[in-house]
Design a protein around this nucleic acid. Structure first.
Lengths: 201, 201
DNA sequence: CCGCTAATACCTACCGATCGGTATCTATTT
DNA sequence: AAATAGATACCGATCGGTAGGTATTAGCGG
């Protein structure tokens, strides 16, 4: 006997995939990779586990999709800014605000999730490659805008990365939204001073 | 029929506890809280799971012990330095080196582990209380040493926390030992500049 | 515009492995 | 002999993954 079973409306694969990635991102961030189950991710996207496994090979595959989409969403605007925004400190400022807003929306990859993800070789390769590409691009922009040496620019970018990560961690752990924004102010100021000094030498 | 079973030498509870905490710390950091099993932690300390559960109520309890011991090991020297070391930048410098060495030894709590741990209310309470206590103490020391205002000192400490975390994350994710140390140099310089400016106003 | 057919997207039910936790017994130490 | 520390064997729940089926949709010939 065939029983009629209600199904979620069939969406084109791309659309459903995007929904699943979105749901997975939120849950991975909120609960951690290992604690978020495939079942609840599927349900959060309005389908069942079976459908989830239709779109993704396994949990790692889903994590990769999450990391990739997340990187693209964040890095895109930064690449844009590095071309349109003449002031490096303004670039940092806007980047930090963007990251903080992303955290508020529950979309910004927590450090813990990232740590877990980078244990997977495929993801680590991707992240590392993209990271280097971006560092090079930003450093190049710095060289042009500030007239400092390439080595110095690369170091400045590393410092910038550390500053961003530091803020993210603090926000994720203890700081309120307001406090985080004030801390961001200070970090931007500080980075400005650093560049100034590098400039003079 | 009774078979004679070899047992690990019986140690005084305190000693075995310390061994178990040490093993757990390493494994939690290396593999993540959820992936490190009670069984392998016990074996790493040379006993079986049964013995582990004799010393700790459950996995959370073990995690709490790990976090607590870790905090005490790191915060102790910092408190000491805040009293003996007159220069705040030197304090930051020594703190950063200490943290980096701790990472090399596999003893420094990764951000991911900390994130997980802080989801447990009991641990979050502990950590938050201790963190505030230390921030106050360091800020007080700054006020005395640099003659800056209390508010400014507290902000400086927040910045300092962010700087430390940023370095840790970078080291855990991408940077080699050498690169991390050079980044630390820059961060110390940066903090020095910040204090100088705060001083002048 | 209509039925028919494939391909696509989705669902249910289950399996097997893992792992936290416990009960109970055994060895060691004092 | 009593207290302490450790070992073993098991249970139950959870969860990733799969098999095999069902519903929906797009496309196509008429």
């Amino acid at each position: 006997m065939k029983r009629s079973v209600k199904q979620s409306p069939k969406l084109p694969a791309e659309k459903r995939r995007a929904q699943l990635v979105k749901a997975a991102t939120r849950l991975f961030i909120r609960k951690g990779y290992r604690w978020a189950t495939m079942d609840e991710i599927a349900r959060a996207a309005g389908v069942t586990k079976g459908a989830l496994y239709f779109h993704f090979k396994n949990k790692e595959d889903l994590l990769f999709a999450v990391v990739k989409q997340s990187w693209e969403r964040v890095s895109g605007p930064i690449y844009d800014l590095s071309e349109t925004e003449p002031s490096p400190t303004a670039l940092l400022d806007k980047t930090l605000r963007m990251c903080l807003e992303d955290i508020d929306r529950g979309n910004y990859l927590s450090m813990g999730l990232l740590e877990q993800a980078l244990k997977i070789p495929r993801i680590r390769n991707y992240w590392s490659r993209e990271n280097i590409r971006m560092a090079d691009a930003l450093a190049e922009a710095l060289v042009v805008k500030c007239g400092i040496g390439r080595e110095e620019a690369l170091m400045a970018i590393k410092l910038l990365d550390a500053v961003i990560d530091g803020l993210i961690v603090q926000r994720n752990i203890f700081l309120s939204k307001q406090e985080a924004n004030r801390l961001a102010d200070q970090l931007v100021r500080l980075f400005g001073i650093y560049l100034n000094q590098a400039d003079k030498r």
